[in-house]
Each structure stands twice: as structure tokens, then as C-alpha cells.
Design a protein around this nucleic acid. Structure first.
Lengths: 334, 334
DNA sequence: ATGAAAGCGCTAACAC
DNA sequence: GTGTTAGCGCTTTCAT
């Protein structure tokens, strides 16, 4: 079934059908009723691609992110989806698996009018923004969420990473830790660098001198490798007695490494993790987290994107939108 | 930039450009090279919607599922995505939040050629398949994964739910549990009913008589409500001493309820959960799981879908494709 | 309030 | 190996 057949059947023009389907005020209520009834009867819905071609908008947005199997991203997707559905938009999802090459290829896929807007959280191995800039030059609205790229002139919705880094170090020092370590996953991701900077600054302030750079340790993207690396860190002599995990995955791996090495949390090592993991409170021991407002970040990023799509330049392009995280103390720092 | 402008610029016809872009053998290597170079120079990619309209296929599939914030579904999405990317397909994602009404509305969205195929895991409140049948009548290939609908003639990729139900009960009985309870989330979802049936059959076999129906308890979709329900179950007199959680969320809630009520796992209550939760081994106590092959299920479902899309009726429509789960004993049944 | 017609950008059948 | 052209299904002026 298509518009032409429906028009013939109803003895109306295709123009009338088209307008009626979109509930145009140009069409009489009576005619609309007739059209809608016939549409239902024959199961007619306008072909979305013909419509997209003609109107030059697709009612579709894309999300590009590193992973789905991470509670932060799952919750963010929920937030995005909630807004998209409300606006009647469709959501394409793409995963980079932390690869810059995949990310660049995916951005290509998004060009030529496939999408009306893009929400992106960049991979930990992304160091240049050319691929993103290219899409932006095609006038595709782009909003960053969580993992942003600071040099690009685009809205970004993030959390208060620096402050949380400060808090993480202060908490551990307050618990008597003397040998802190920050386990990062990237030298370039703002979420990591800022958390690490805050962490280092708090230590500097406390000690009154410059903290050695090796307080920040960079873990590999491959989980197998990073687990081995964490074990190494925990076997250093002297052993670190306070760990900050920059992301969820690393936090969990610290547990696994401690178990393997026979170390006890928190008596041997205290741990605080940037994480939204839902099982934090029932872990052994329960995990002290800096919990990001994942759903809110996704939701706000989507709302911002739709403002851009609607043509409202919301005036924030330079300033990030910051939604704060909350520190929840549990037994891993007890 | 579009095909026409590129044709004018290169002094070629649009047909030649079109064929060259698709690497047709009709076009000389020399011409192709020229076209590709110009395409890169002007950042030209064929408009996907014009192409879809003309070819009547969208190179897009959809996934409809209840949630993303659940490790099973996250991993399944990974598996699906891996295959889709390999095939050069785009993936639309839709969430039902366990609502039949939303699910029905989303299936409507998928009609009129928007997608070339659908992967679906139905909501726990879906009891009729009319909405799915309707899309099937439009000749859209559909494959179920995990949560299927048995009466529909469509391929489905599932795990060995009945057997695992048997195993769960046997394990608990073997540990000396005398008062078992199966916490379900739906009276209609095959994953739940079959797990429960296996559970009941094992008990019947062991006792030699018909187990009372109230060994299966149905939890509400709303997490707030289900948590309260689980607390109630755990305060029954006599208290159940062995719990089977039918899905991940319920398993976690049993921990929370026990904590609140001051009950100890496994000494007061033993617990086995159908779950792929990554933190199972570091929970307090570590969780005995029946771990579904989530990634594999997603991957296989996607592969099956692409066979259908390719027109190969793979001959399995009546028989489900079963990928077995594995029972991993940990301390919660210790 | 309704209709005629142009055309969105592309592909494929058919010429040459 | 390359070109011409019809038309995918729809929306949108512009008439009437």
C-alpha cells in the first residue's frame, strides 16, 4: 500500500492524502477521518525514506559510544532514548569498542543526511577531532556526553570530574592512606585527565610539594592486559594503600586483582571507583563510588541536541553543561 | 554535493557515477578511480534515503528489547552489533521498558520499509502476538532472541531454560534446602515459565508428589514493588531456605532484601540466579549463577536474521536454536 | 478545501 | 564502458 493507491481508492488526490496524514489544517475534518480510517484499514504508513528524501530530514539521531556493557553507558542510553521517543525520533546505535579507527568510520556513516543529529562519547584512543569536525562542517548538530573533546565548538554534557578527583584523593588521605595511585585509562580523555588532575592537586595541597607523576598509572584498553597491569601495581614495593579507579571496569578489576593476590580491601588497600555499578552496595566489601548522574547526562545531552536540531543555538557552546556526581562512602574505604 | 553535480563536474553521466560508487564491473578501473577521488575530494556519499527508496531496502535492522541496563541485554546487543557492522547494516534500538503498549507502538514504527529485519526480545507483559504478526505479514523478517513467543512461526534463539530450571532446584535440594521458592517475573514469558517448569519438575521427582503451585512466586515489573514483595516472601513463616531468581534484577534484589532483613546468604537462605552479572564473583557472598551465553545468543540471532534477509529460509522456523547456559557454583549456595 | 505537478537523489533497465 | 531515462513514494508550492 502506498499513497497513490490510497488516493485512487478514496477518490482523492495524493496531495490531500499526504496533508491529511499529517493532520494539516488545510484539510476538512471529514476528509481526514476518511483518510485515517482507510489508512488503518489498509495498514498504510507513509514510507519514511520517501519522506526523508523529500523533506531532507530523517527524524533519526545516532549515538556513538565505546561500549554498552557498562552501566554508565546503559543508563545514559536510557536517558537519551526517553527524550528521543518523546520527540518521535529514531535512534541508531554504534559502538566503537574504544577504537579511533572504528569511530572515524562510523562518523562517515553518519554523513549525507542519514541523521539529524549526533550524540557522541569518544573512544579512549581518540586524539584528533578531524572526523568529528568533518561531520560538523556538514551542519550536523553534535553534542558530546561524558567523554568530550574540549577543543571542538560543540555543546557537551559532563560531570564535575576535577572536583571529584580532588574528593577521591582527600577521602583516601583522610582514611590514612599514604601511597595513593590513580588508575587511568587514557592520557587524552578529559574525563580521565581532569579526574587525575584533581586527584594530584589534592595531594599536592596536602603535602605542600609536587606529587610524582607516577601516581597516575595508565591501563590498557584490553581488559586482559589491564588486569595484569593492576596486579603489577598492587605488587609494587612499597604497595599502594589507596586506589582510585577512573572508570567502572577498572574498579571491578581491582577487586579481582586483590582476590588473586590475597589482598584485603580495605585493610591492605582502600578503593574508590568512578562508577554507577548497581551492585556497589552488595560487593565484598561494598564499594565506595563516585556515582555519575548517567541517566541525567544522557537526558540532558539529548535535550540539548534537540534544541540544536530545532535551530535554537542554546548559547552554551563554549561552556560545558555540568551535572555533578555524588560520592557515596561504603566499606571499601572503611 | 550530490550525484548530479559530481556527474557534471566529472563530465560523466549520473549512471556512471552511481555504478562506479558501487564498484560495478561495468565501469573501467580508470573511471572508478576518478570518481572515487572526486567523491573523496567533495566529501560525497550517496544519500542513503534516496538509495533506500529506490532499492526498497534500507540496510537497517531494529532491535526491540525491554531494557539496556541489564547485563544480559547489553551483551546481546554487542553480539548483534558485531554481526550487523560486519554486514554493513545500521542498527536502530528501541526499548519497551516491559510495556506491551510501547512494544506494540514500536512495531508500528518498524513498518513501511523502515527496516530490513527485526530482532526482538518481548516484554514481560506481552501476551498476544498480533502486533508482531502484523509486521510479519508485511514480509519483514523477524527473529526472536531469549524472550520468544512460541506460537509464532519465526526463528528464535534461546537457551536451555527448562533444563536449567531443573538444575537450579536440584542444586538447592542437594545443599539441603527444604523450602524452595522460584521468583518469576511473568506468567507468560517462555523464559520464565520454562525455567519454573523445570524447577517444579525436579522437585516433583525428588518428592514423588505434586509440588504446591505457590513455590513459584510472581514479582511485579516495578522494581520498588518487587523489592517489597521479595521481602515479604523472605518473612514468610516458615521462611524459604532456597531461592531461585529467574532474572538478574531479581537476584540482586534478593541480596538487598536479605541485607535489610538481617538474613545471611547462604546460611539463612541459599540463592541461585539466572544472571550474567559481571560482578557475580565479587559479591558478598559471591553469587551462584546460571550464566546465559548472552553475546552468543545475540550473535546467532543476528546471523539468523541475515540469512532470512538474504532469502535463505534456513529451515529452522519450527525448531528453536538452543544455546546452553552454564551453572557456576559460588558461595551463595555454599 | 482539494488537486496538479515538479522534484528530492538515486538506481536499474535499456540503449548505444 | 558509458549514457538516457523512468520512477521509487512522498511533500510542497501554486492553482483552482
Amino acid at each position: 500500500m502506498n499513497i497513490k493507491k490510497l488516493a485512487t481508492y478514496l477518490q482523492l488526490s495524493v496531495a490531500t492524502i499526504s496533508k491529511a496524514m499529517r493532520d494539516s489544517h488545510e484539510i476538512s475534518e471529514e476528509t481526514k477521518k476518511k483518510v485515517w480510517a482507510a489508512a488503518r484499514e489498509f495498514n498504510y504508513t507513509p514510507n519514511p525514506y520517501a519522506s526523508s528524501l523529500r523533506r531532507k530530514k530523517s527524524k533519526t539521531i545516532a549515538i556513538i559510544l565505546p561500549e554498552v556493557a557498562d552501566n554508565f553507558f546503559s543508563l545514559a542510553i536510557n536517558g537519551i532514548q526517553a527524550i528521543a521517543e518523546q520527540k518521535g525520533y529514531h535512534v541508531l546505535i554504534y559502538l566503537t569498542h574504544e577504537s579511533y579507527e572504528i569511530e572515524a568510520a562510523l562518523l562517515e556513516e553518519c554523513s549525507s543526511g542519514r541523521i539529524d543529529g549526533l550524540l557522541i562519547s569518544i573512544s579512549s584512543n581518540t586524539r584528533t577531532a578531524d572526523h568529528i569536525k568533518k561531520l560538523q562542517d556538514e551542519k550536523v548538530p553534535i553534542v558530546f556526553f561524558d567523554r568530550d573533546f574540549e577543543l571542538l565548538n560543540a555543546p557537551r554534557v559532563i560531570t564535575n570530574d576535577f572536583e571529584c578527583g580532588v574528593q577521591s584523593a582527600r577521602l583516601l588521605m583522610g582514611k590514612g592512606c599514604a601511597r595513593l595511585k590513580f588508575l587511568s585509562i587514557s592520557e587524552s580523555l578529559p574525563i580521565c585527565t581532569k579526574r587525575a588532575e584533581g586527584f594530584l592537586q589534592a595531594i599536592n595541597e596536602a603535602s605542600g610539594k609536587e606529587a610524582p607523576a607516577d601516581l597516575v598509572y595508565y591501563c590498557h584498553t584490553d581488559p586482559q592486559v589491564s588486569l595484569a597491569q593492576i596486579e603489577e601495581v598492587l605488587m609494587q614495593n612499597p604497595r599502594p594503600d589507596g586506589i582510585v579507579a577512573s572508570v567502572e571496569r577498572i574498579g571491578i578489576q581491582v577487586y579481582l586483582a586483590c582476590r588473586k593476590l590475597g589482598l584485603s580491601i580495605p585493610s591492605d588497600v582502600k578503593l574508590v571507583a568512578f562508577s554507577t555499578v548497581e551492585t556497589a552496595s552488595i560487593l565484598n566489601p561494598s564499594l565506595t563510588t563516585i556515582t555519575q548522574p548517567a541517566f541525567e547526562i544522557g537526558k540532558t545531552a539529548a535535550e540539548t541536541l534537540f534544541m540544536l536540531i530545532a535551530g535554537k543555538d542554546y548559547g552554551y557552546s563554549k561552556k560545558p553543561i555540568v551535572i555533578p556526581s555524588v560520592l557515596i562512602e561504603r566499606d571499601s574505604t572503611g
